[in-house]
Every structure is written in structure tokens, then in C-alpha cells.
């Protein structure tokens, strides 16, 4: 009987099949998993797909019964309508989008500028009743925004901030600062204080040490936090609809909602503006996805 040397000593992969029972259960599970995930994906993605489809259908096809899934004529008219008014010039929707960009952008920057140093201070310094203060800051987020919308409305009316972009910026900043402090504190805790200590011994002041050494290490965390803050401000609806009324000031969410409710609803336009509305957040999150994941997992591990 000839046994090849190769076979006899081969340390390579064993050709033996694993026990059949395990294999079947393994493959069975995979099939089931894929099937379930497919169903889930279809159910979850259908509204999004339908929105995209509707946005590129002609009005005729939008209302077609039975619904047309594939054989419709593609048009970009609705997208044009989002940005260009029917008589030429800028549409009111495009103004709303611009407002959204300004309000969300400015409030995010403000929340970051205020929240990051605060988080640093809470992380590094012995602050009196630190735990209580942090809990208080967090507790401002326990309350759903809609609870405070009436008081805010009354106060804003007194100071003339109703129907004013500044009003929205302030309220969004106020909502994002606590979040920024909490999330950023996790990141700052992760950066050893020794970097700053070393820098201070090397001749820098405390603030310089923070700016030059800790801040660069916080960039991923700041990116992640800012994206979350941006998404909150961008999507916010309740304050926007209560505190603004004119087309010049309104942000996109109430503006898009306002498209529904006339005698006829231009679903194509609604869908197109929704797509335009959803895109920036998706793109932004995609661009910083590396930081998002790194940031979220880093911040999650508390020492």
C-alpha cells in the first residue's frame, strides 16, 4: 500500500468533511438568514424606493392604477420644480432649503464651539458637584421638545424672535449643547491628561496645551458629534413649524409638509423635495463614516 509522503505528513487543511449534521444546520441557518434579511430590507427600503420612483415619474404615472413599478417615463421635472419657481426665479422650496442649511449649519457650529470646551472642562477639572451638573445637563434632554414649545413660543414673542432664523438657531443650539457635552466628554476622557500636563511643562499654557494637543486628537469625536447635532437640527420639525410662518424664514421640514394639504397634492414634487432633503445628511454621514464608527465605539468605552 503506497502512502504518499505528502499525504502522510501534510500539515495542510484536513480534507475530511466536518460532521454532516453541523454543516446542514450551518447552511440552513445561512439560507434562513438571507431570506429574512431580504424580506426585512424590502420592507424597510420600499418607502425610500417608492419616494425616489415617484420623484422621477410624470404626474400621470404617479396616479396610475394599478401602480407602475418599472415601465414609466423618467422625468426630472419635479426636481426642477423644487428649485425653480413656475414663473422662473427661485422657488419658495429652494429658499427653505437654504434656510435649513443656514440654521442647521450655524446651530451645529455653535453647539460644537460651546460644547467641546465645556466637555473638556468637565473632563479635566475638579468642578464642584460635577456629577449633579452633568446630570442636570443631561436631564434637559429627557423632555420631548414639544413639551416646551408653547413656553418658548410665548417667550420668543416677547423678545421678537418669532419667525426669525436666529430664534431657530438659538433653540437648536440649546438642544444640541447638552448632547455635545455628553458625547464629547466621553472622547475627552479617552485622551490621557498627561499630554496636556507634558505640554504645560514644556512651556505652554493650559489653553494652548488643549488647543495644540488634545484638540487634534478629538477631531474624530468632534466630527461624529457634529454629524449627530447636524442631523437633529436638519430634521427638526416641531419648533420649526411653531416658531416660523413666512416662506422667507421657514426651514425645509415644515415647507415640505406644507406641500401636502391643498386641494390637490403634487406628489411628484413632495417626493422630489424629500429626496433633496434626505441627500445632504446621507452624503455627510457617508463622508465622515470612518470617524462616525471610530467615534461612536471610542466614546462608548468609558474608563
Amino acid at each position: 500500500m503506497a502512502v504518499s509522503v505528502n499525504e502522510a505528513v501534510s500539515p495542510g487543511p484536513v480534507r475530511d468533511h466536518p460532521p454532516p449534521a453541523r454543516r446542514r444546520s450551518g447552511r440552513g441557518r445561512t439560507v434562513l438568514e438571507v431570506a429574512l434579511l431580504t424580506v426585512l430590507a424590502v420592507v424597510m427600503l420600499f418607502p425610500v424606493l417608492w419616494m425616489i420612483e415617484t420623484s422621477i415619474k410624470e404626474n400621470r404615472d404617479v396616479y396610475a392604477v394599478p401602480a407602475k413599478f418599472f415601465d414609466f417615463k423618467v422625468t426630472l421635472d419635479h426636481y426642477r420644480d423644487v428649485f425653480v419657481a413656475s414663473g422662473g426665479g427661485r422657488s419658495t422650496l429652494s429658499v427653505s432649503f437654504l434656510n435649513s442649511v443656514i440654521v442647521a449649519g450655524v446651530s451645529t457650529v455653535l453647539a460644537t464651539v460651546l460644547g467641546v470646551p465645556a466637555a473638556w472642562a468637565y473632563s479635566r477639572f475638579a468642578v464642584r458637584a460635577k456629577k449633579d451638573q452633568l446630570f442636570f445637563i443631561l436631564s434637559t434632554r429627557f423632555m420631548p421638545p414639544v413639551v416646551v414649545v408653547i413656553p418658548i413660543f410665548l417667550m420668543y414673542r416677547q423678545v421678537g424672535l418669532i419667525d426669525n432664523a436666529l430664534g431657530l438657531i438659538l433653540i437648536y443650539t440649546a438642544f444640541n449643547v447638552p448632547f455635545t457635552i455628553w458625547m464629547m466628554k466621553g472622547f475627552v476622557d479617552e485622551v490621557p491628561a498627561e499630554y496636556e500636563d507634558a505640554a504645560m511643562l514644556d512651556g505652554y499654557t493650559r489653553l494652548q496645551a488643549f488647543r495644540k494637543f488634545t484638540l487634534p486628537l478629538l477631531v474624530p469625536g468632534i466630527a461624529a458629534t457634529a454629524v449627530f447635532a447636524l442631523i437633529f437640527s436638519w430634521n427638526e420639525f416641531v419648533f420649526a413649524i411653531f416658531l416660523t410662518s413666512s416662506d422667507d424664514v421657514r426651514t425645509a421640514p415644515p415647507a415640505i409638509a406644507g406641500l401636502i394639504g391643498g386641494t390637490t397634492v403634487d406628489w411628484g414634487l413632495v417626493a422630489a423635495s424629500s429626496v433633496v432633503f434626505a441627500l445632504p445628511v446621507l452624503v455627510f454621514a457617508y463622508l465622515v463614516r470612518k470617524h462616525l464608527v471610530a467615534g461612536v465605539t471610542l466614546g462608548a468605552v468609558r474608563r
Binding site: 499630554y195 500636563d197 507634558a198 512651556g203 499654557t205 487634534p216 486628537l217
Partner: peptide
């Protein structure tokens, strides 16, 4: 303040600036 005491400290966790090369870490102070 620490900066004006003119002393150097070595920490248990070294505290080398992670984004700087050795040369720059040394040159920093």
C-alpha cells in the same frame, strides 16, 4: 505655572505626542 518652573517630567504612560514623529516630539519643548 508649570511652564515657568523649568523642570521636565517623565510620566508612567510616556505622554509622547501621538501625531508627532520622534524628532518633532523631541524638538517640541
Amino acid at each position: 505655572p508649570p511652564a515657568e518652573r523649568d523642570i521636565a517630567m517623565v510620566f508612567q504612560f510616556y505622554a509622547l505626542y501621538p501625531h508627532l514623529r520622534t524628532r518633532d516630539n523631541l524638538a517640541f519643548p
